[in-house]
Design a protein around this nucleic acid. Structure first.
Length: 206
DNA sequence: CTGGGGATGGTCT
DNA sequence: GACCATCCCCAGA
């Protein structure tokens, strides 16, 4: 059993502009407790979605449905949704009435590697968590976590490690979103092997 | 009522 | 790099 489980970050952590939050989440620990055990990893890749002006966001044009409802609530809640056969995990941002979110696209696993591997049907190494659908499967994150406050177990975010270097570039998988596809709103830890896809980026800081 | 369309991933060439 | 499994939502009729 793991000891010294870090404490959740306070609500105040999420009270900042979404683009800044997307960068600050890099290096933080994402932790999920379940009856099967504990799983945790460092967040290494994120994407910002800033509705209503962002054509790639689910909340574009203030679109408000059962799915996007949680984006209109306070920052720091979990926004999970199903894409094809996978569940994707976002952190609600922007504050009440501002439907924004940060998609977590990849993590570097730290705790519960065996559990993750079994949830991922035997996959190992980077394949465990180097994609938004893969990491939710490995972590045991599902639609049951929709709307959960990330300040408390079983799903929460804690302080981790400060990245040496951060890069930014275009977001992934939004080819059909007009000029929104050009926005450099994807962030990752430079050189981290768990980043989902290697693509041109600009180094922001070291 | 119906159908088009995904913020993906796995597998194959 | 291309193909498609799979499924629920919701816009439009």
């Amino acid at each position: 059993m793991e000891q010294n489980i870090p404490q959740p970050l306070p609500g105040l952590f999420y009270e900042r502009p979404t683009l800044e939050l997307a960068g600050e989440l890099l290096g933080c620990l994402l932790i999920k407790q379940s009856s099967e055990g504990l799983a945790a990893g460092y967040i290494v890749e994120t994407e910002a979605y800033i509705g209503p002006g962002d054509k790639a966001a689910h909340s574009y044009n203030n679109r408000r449905t059962k799915r996007t409802e949680i984006m209109y609530h306070q920052s720091g809640l979990a926004y999970t949704y199903v894409m094809h056969t996978h569940c994707l995990f976002n952190v609600v941002s922007g504050g009440k009435g501002h439907p924004e979110a940060v998609l977590v696209r990849a993590i570097e696993p730290i705790i519960g590697l065996d559990l993750m591997s079994s949830r991922r049907l035997g996959h190992i190494g980077v394949n465990l968590t180097n994609g938004p659908g893969k990491l939710t499967k490995a972590m045991g994150i599902s639609m049951e976590d929709y709307g959960h406050d990330l300040q408390s177990p079983p799903l929460f975010i804690a302080r981790g490690r400060t990245p040496d270097s951060i890069s930014a570039g275009k977001r992934i998988g939004i080819e059909n979103s007009g000029e929104a596809r050009e926005y450099p709103w994807r962030f990752w830890i430079t050189g981290n092997p768990f980043v989902s896809r290697h693509q041109k980026g600009e180094e922001l800081r070291k």
